[in-house]
Amino acid sequence: MHASPIPDPAPDAQYLLRTGDTCLILAQRLAEWCGHAPVLEEDIALANMALDLLGQARALLTRAGQLGGPGRPVRDEDQLAFLRDERDFRNLTIAELPRGDFAVTVLRNAMVATLLRQLWHRLQDSRDAEVAAIAAKAVKEARYHQRHAADWAVRLADGTDESRRRMQAALRRLWPYRHEMFEAGDPVDEAAAASGLGPRWSELREPWHADMDALLAEAGLEPPADTPFRSTGRHGRHSEHLGPLLAEMQSLQRAYPGGVW
C-alpha cells in the first residue's frame, strides 16, 4: 500500500490544491465525454476544455508540491495526482459529480468556469510569482470556457421543451453545490489572504453571482429554492462519486507503481 504523499499539507499547498484538484477532477469527468458527446464539435470542445484544465492542474499541482511545508519533501504532480487517497483531494464536490446528461455538463462547466475565471483573475496578483504566471495564462482559457458553456446553457434553455426541461433539472441538481465555493471564515483561505498567495474564495461570491445571474436571466431559468445542504469536498470530505473516479484514474499507478508510459 502507498502512504498518501501529503496527508496534511501546509495551508498554502492546500489552498492551491483546491483549485488544482478541481481542475484535475473536472478534466477527468469531461474526458469521459470523449466519443460520447451529442455532436462531434462538442466532443472536440469538451476534450479541448479537459486538456486546458489538465494543463492548469499540472501547473498548480507542481507548485503545491513545492509548498508542502517545513520538513516535507517536494512532491511532483504525478505523485499528487496518482498516489493521494480520496480524503486528501481538495476539489470542489461539484467537479466530481457524475457527468450526467449534456445539460448537467454544460451547466457545471458554466458554474465552475465562472468561479475559475474570477479566481484566476485575482491570482494574477498573487505574491507567488509562479502562481501569478499560471493565472495570467489560465484566466484567458477560463473566459473562453465560460463563454462556451454559457452559450450552450442559453441555447438549451431556449431550445425544445425537452432541452429546457433538462436544463431546469440540471439547475435543480447543481445549484446547491455553489455554497461550497464561497464558505466564509475558512482557515486555509484566511492564511492565503494573509500571505498574499490569493483571495478568500468568499470574496468571489458577488462577481460569480453577477455573471451567473446574467446567464440565468438570458436563459430564462429560475434557480431552485435554497436548502441547508452544504457540500464539503474542499475539506477532503467528498461525495460517494470521487472514489470510483480515482479508482479508474489511478489504477495504472496503483498496479504498476512508478511505471512510465
Binding site: T114, A142, R143, R147, A150, D151, A210, A214
Partner: peptide, 12 residues
C-alpha cells in the same frame, strides 16, 4: 481586452 477577467460575461 478584458482577458484579465473583469469584463462582464458575453455570449458568442
Amino acid at each position: 481586452a478584458g482577458g484579465d477577467g473583469l469584463a462582464p460575461l458575453r455570449f458568442f
